[in-house]
Design a binder for these strands. Sequence first.
DNA 1: AACCGACATATTGTATACAGATTGTGTTGT
DNA 2: ACAACACAATCTGTATACAATATGTCGGTT
Lengths: 215, 215
Amino acid sequence: MKTKGKGQNLSDEIYNLLKAQILNGKLAGGEKIPEESLAKQFGVSRTPIREAVRRLGEYGLVSIKPRCYAEVTTISEKEAKDIARVRIHLECLAVDLITPQSLENNIRNLARCSAECQYALDIGDRALSFEQDSQFHLELIKASENSALINLYEHLGAKIQQLRITQNLYGIALKDYTIQHEQIMRLLREEKKEECKVLLYEHVMHSPYPEGLAL
Amino acid sequence: MKTKGKGQNLSDEIYNLLKAQILNGKLAGGEKIPEESLAKQFGVSRTPIREAVRRLGEYGLVSIKPRCYAEVTTISEKEAKDIARVRIHLECLAVDLITPQSLENNIRNLARCSAECQYALDIGDRALSFEQDSQFHLELIKASENSALINLYEHLGAKIQQLRITQNLYGIALKDYTIQHEQIMRLLREEKKEECKVLLYEHVMHSPYPEGLAL
DNA sequence: AACCGACATATTGTATACAGATTGTGTTGT
DNA sequence: ACAACACAATCTGTATACAATATGTCGGTT
């Protein structure tokens, strides 16, 4: 379920293209999005553009000022922290919700993402390894088999990825990623939920788990 | 346009109207939403209708089958449980995030909602009391002052309210609502977070807190 | 009678035209 | 020189027309 260029209709296509451009930084935060120029750029009419931009607006990737303009949402320092806090909390909920059965159903996907993340690291493709890591966390959420949780996380997911661009998270060390992914899966299998959550925190936040923080 | 303007543009108006109709049950789950007939009904063109329906789709209140039709989303039994589980988890996160300072900033709103909920009960307006209770919980989330959490909860909020309609929650006892609201506020002031979460659980789920459930 | 396919109908998807609003600029008056 | 107003340019909001696609019906075939 990657960003596919082709959708069933133009709106979807444009939506995916714009989303991809925002998420990989080609469209930077604060950039204005005039409908007509985009329409010309993509060779379609304003209608599909408009729908795509509105959808992105509902997603929070675009801020729409009625009758004025739309622009790529900029994420403030505080919002970044807020998002991270909610993110870790949702992932911990997923850990709580995962049962041996649901883990069984989804472990293959988790393992695949972990492997592909490792592969990306091996060939030195940092962007791809980030993407695969994102996918790993999404699969973790999916393993909860809670549709509401999956839905909400997908909303956050886009912003998390946007954060990885705007903040310069590309500088951080990735070498432990695979080890941590494998550990997370092991702790899930052993149903050591609390340990798993702590490890998740450190994996996501790139910092040691602070005592006393509720997960 | 036949109805008086509430939003800045027709799309917003239609969006609010449709949302309200779904949330108060006038538009039942599974009902189809043909754009043109709605357009005639509201006396506008298809364009604002379309935008509104798309927004509701992004919100999860409407399911859109491309090139076929859109219909009001039906919530399955399992989804209802999923939503409730995530809901209580988010509210508990809010409790954790609330600081004496943020509580100070928001306690007035909480108290107001509690009072208006009580008032609605006094005059026997169950629908209004439900609405004020919903508002109370939203204000609780807002007291966390975490924008990401507030955003996500607003997405869930609509579905929660839709649930209150589809499931016949109107039958449950409401007499303890105000007492519980007041207790929740007291526990927040006293920073007894764990007690507060347990009470929240029982208030939201209308059932005793099961030992061992992670909040 | 059941099944299959073609046509008719209805509904969505897209383009385009027009109206209304906002922003910026230039002119005018003091 | 500065402020205020007016106007022009630009963009969004809405309506409408047209194209593409799904659904339903009817007739024919087996």
